[in-house]
Nucleic acid binder design. Structure first.
Ligand SMILES: [Mn+2]
Ligand SMILES: [Mn+2]
Ligand SMILES: [Mn+2]
Ligand SMILES: [Mn+2]
Lengths: 244, 244
DNA sequence: ATATATTTTTAGACTAATCTAAAATTTTGT
DNA sequence: ACAAAATTTTAGATTAGTCTAAAAATATAT
């Protein structure tokens, strides 16, 4: 009985980063991850302080402090009032965190049977577990998945994000058959809404009509079922034309 | 692409405890866990400030501060200068952390193929992941293990620690056949030392002699192999007489 | 029993991450 | 182009967790 033994508890806010042996906190990892994702969403444009405040659930003043600190550590390119982008070092940390987040999400769905709407908050915690060997073995255990349960691509062990070319369903011409590849909103409410209509990753979709009345989309699902989804839904479904 | 969505990042030092909806930090969880394990090791006697300082890798002054705080939250019984024990509330938190630690250790060995000497530090991180549903599903996925890879019992979901009755190999009479059930030291060095001699959980051991020269133990392993282990090793092997 | 040694607590200080309020800068609208 | 609005940064505080040094309490040893 009894755990113990010497180094029983070396915990907390700091761990040795896997990237360049600089100390990095959970908080810093989260900022870098969010900057990466927002930059990606804005096609490479700078991320603003207010945007970061919104996504970190803090105030702009707190973000300014953190940006100064991240800039000192050379994780971000920062000119006051001008927004930020990641440096190469910062991007590598962000990609490592995103890789872990998405691998754990695959684990939660494929191995533990969670629904895709239940996993994000748990992955927010697991993404900070620091062990290169663990990530490697998890990746193998999951058979090296390339996409997470929301269709998001998983960066590889070398920190390279696969490029994907998805389009919004709302931008696809009528009667063009496409495959459902991902979602651009990850809220449980949205994902559960899709579940109810049997819209899942990999399903076949075809826009048959756009209603004059409310701009909702009349779809053919899996060449079989007719259904309507709101314009909002159509704009958040990411699809790809059949690759023949 | 892009994760994001509203509550993307609610992180850090505080989470809602699963036990009684009081906020509890990683640090507090670690103190409670260590108090539990040291109390167990001392057969229910109070744990001292200096012992905690050693095991938390901090100084006695820091421990005193934390003890005041844990006592205010009614997680420990604390009279100044007299050491501490856990309250029922504190014990439940400790057992929840220990349960998660040991379940994750089983996962790392059984599913990811880690050696029993490689898992402790990773489990130190994973034990703080806060999701009752995750723990429940992990437990099922692992087929409800009762012991971790070091032979330590896993507390059940209701927070009850199974009682085990192991003896040190050094206290077993000569020629008594016993089963190897656990280790009382968890250092990688000790575990690797056992690996080299093929001493594993569940193996059969019999003390054939205790050397007059250096008090080392001459053993019969699995009714087959003769080997010597140091007195130190014999005192840290936990065994049980065959339950017929 | 009393002096000495050990352990524990307190006092005062520091860092990371956060906040509010105020000042500085940039953007927008006419 | 310039005033008003919005955004961002700075100033000054707060909290959790830690530290060192000093004081207080307890344990030990003759
Ligand atoms: Mn997610
Ligand atoms: Mn995802
Ligand atoms: Mn362990
Ligand atoms: Mn263990």
């Amino acid at each position: 009985m009894a755990i113990s033994c010497g180094l029983l508890a070396i915990f907390l806010y700091y761990r040795l980063s896997t990237v360049d042996n600089q100390l990095i906190s959970f908080t810093e990892e989260n900022y870098l991850k969010i900057i990466y994702l927002l930059t990606e969403r804005h096609n490479g444009n700078e991320v603003s302080t207010n945007q970061l405040a919104e996504h970190t659930q803090t105030k702009a003043a707190s973000v300014s402090d953190m940006l100064r600190k991240l800039a000192e550590k050379n994780y971000i390119n920062y000119r006051k009032y001008q927004g930020v982008t990641l440096t190469e070092a910062g991007e590598q940390i962000a990609l490592s965190v995103i890789r872990k987040h998405r691998l754990w999400e695959v684990f939660l769905v494929e191995k533990l049977g969670f629904g895709w709407d239940e996993i994000h908050d748990i992955a927010e915690q697991l993404e900070h577990i620091d062990s290169k060997e663990l990530t490697k073995r998890l990746d193998d255990f999951l058979e090296n998945p390339k996409f997470d349960p929301h269709g998001d691509p998983i960066p590889d062990a070398k920190g390279k994000m696969p490029s994907v070319s998805y389009q919004k369903l709302s931008e696809i011409p009528l009667n063009q058959s496409v495959v459902m590849m991902g979602v651009s909103v990850h809220s449980p409410a949205f994902l559960q809404h899709l579940d109810k209509q049997q819209i899942t990753l990999g399903c076949d979709l075809k826009v048959l009509e756009i209603s004059d009345f409310d701009k909702s989309y009349g779809l053919l699902l899996n060449n079989d079922i007719r259904l309507f989804v709101s314009n909002e839904v159509a704009r958040n479904l990411l699809v790809q034309v059949q690759n023949s």
